[in-house]
Design a protein around this nucleic acid. Structure first.
Lengths: 255, 255
DNA sequence: CTGTTTGAAAATGCATGCAATCTGTCGTCG
DNA sequence: CGACGACAGATTGCATGCATTTTCAAACAG
């Protein structure tokens, strides 16, 4: 048996994350996305806790969290099983994100008090436009795009002013393939992908304009189409049978 | 110290629910809805576990579940706090449910393969219509309405065929004031409320018709308006300053 | 009088081991 | 030959106690 103090020191060397539960959550999420735990597989807590060098209580807490995020299915009184996702699930998750962001855009348009509050969003959308217009996207440009994109979506939620909507969107985006930056890490110099980037950037700008003009329905529609770009990107990747290792969470998909 | 076996027998007498965690979850949810744990209050696990006669591990698991349902806020490394909801949060939660059920109705219309699949929904909507047309609603009629209503919404999700959407709606409806039957237990003979019941029943029927005709946009709009009936009902109750004890989860609301 | 330090009390995090439940297998009966 | 039931191993659920972190208030410095 391993002494608590010894274990604490050992794990402290591996990672300086704050708690065992958090460490377990991160490790498991990584394993899931990498496909080291296969869809449909039943989780056995004892061997897994030994493998991660984490005792069963924090492991169990981590499993419960991942189940809530949607990665695992909980079998009452029988533990956990790795969730199986179909291609339809992925499409539906992206569609759902579109619906929710559409609602956020509409609420933002309906509730906007001071048009100056849009300043940040407008700025971000301009920066994105400049970025994607550059003929060749560098690796830094690419990570910068992801950052700007995340900030745009966060700012939209701020303006919509709905905690409930934020909660719902956060939950959908737990699933890696549903997040806005899910299918961006493809061959980022391909012409097709560049076109999608441009379309996406234009949609950002038009969403801002629609909100600014209080055109709720239009803002909603564009935001929905914006999510559909991710869907097209995904379907394109599927059609080309790209090595799905690079695609976010594709290891969780069973056909 | 209480022996495990003794405790098991004791709790077995109190309730025949399967696990300690489940019992704790049910007990806490009840306490929250009843307002025995007040918004903003910090949860102290040891006294609470003593009060519920449940040890700290299953209590902690129950708390984590309730946090995921939205009742509690988790303070990392500092435990849990009872969530505070504003009137805007309630309105937004209902609006969100409307958005999601609207999406379900649209998808159902777009994806409907066999119009016969709508048979059950059509039947339910007719039964509801007959029920609410009766001049005086009995208590049994009232509980029957809640049951039929739940079955209608479940059938809609079945036809939409989206697991992701079902997940999202289930999550919103965890919050008692967001669920479809949240604000029905008012003075159920009041004329105003009876009108809302009739409108609601009509909307059920029209949603079915719209889906049947593949009118996705129309189905979506009606489903959204359908949720807005709940919102009107809530706002009406607020305006009249009804004793909010009867309203689902109203004890969680801070102005 | 305000901001900082410190240390004790209280609270959560977690390791361990036991109890109860589930799973799969083998034997028996219909 | 298949269904049912009992037993053993495996697996999760949970109680307990210790370790660590947080809280909070009082002493202290500025």
């Amino acid at each position: 048996m391993v002494n608590q103090a010894v274990r604490k020191i050992a794990s402290g060397n591996e990672s300086r994350s704050s708690s065992q539960t958090e460490r377990a959550t991160l490790a498991l999420r990584e394993m899931l996305v990498r496909g080291q735990l296969r869809p449909g597989e039943k989780i056995r807590e004892v061997p897994l806790s030994a493998q991660l060098n984490i005792s069963r209580i924090p492991l169990h807490l981590a499993l419960e969290r991942l189940a809530n995020e949607g990665f695992l299915e909980t079998l009452p009184k029988r533990g956990f099983r790795v969730q199986r996702f179909s291609v339809e699930d992925i499409n539906d998750a992206i569609e759902l994100r579109g619906v929710l962001e559409g609602a956020a855009a509409r609420l933002a348009a309906e509730r906007l008090k001071d048009p100056l509050a849009l300043g940040q969003m407008r700025e971000i959308s301009r920066e994105i436009l400049i970025l994607v217009r550059r003929s060749k996207m560098t690796m830094e440009g690419y990570t910068r795009y992801i950052d700007l994109n995340a900030r745009f979506h966060s700012a939209l939620l701020d303006i919509s002013g709905s905690r409930m909507l934020r909660r719902a969107i956060e939950r959908v985006c737990c699933l890696p393939f549903a997040s806005p930056s899910a299918f961006l890490n493809r061959q980022y110099n391909s012409t097709d992908l560049r076109e999608l980037f441009l379309i996406s950037a234009d949609q950002h700008c038009e969403i801002v304009e629609a909100i600014s003009n209080r055109e709720g329905a239009r803002a909603e529609n564009i935001a929905r189409e914006h999510a559909r770009v991710a869907r097209r990107n995904f379907e394109d990747a599927m059609r080309r049978r790209e090595p799905i290792d690079d695609l976010a969470g594709a290891k969780l998909v069973s056909l």
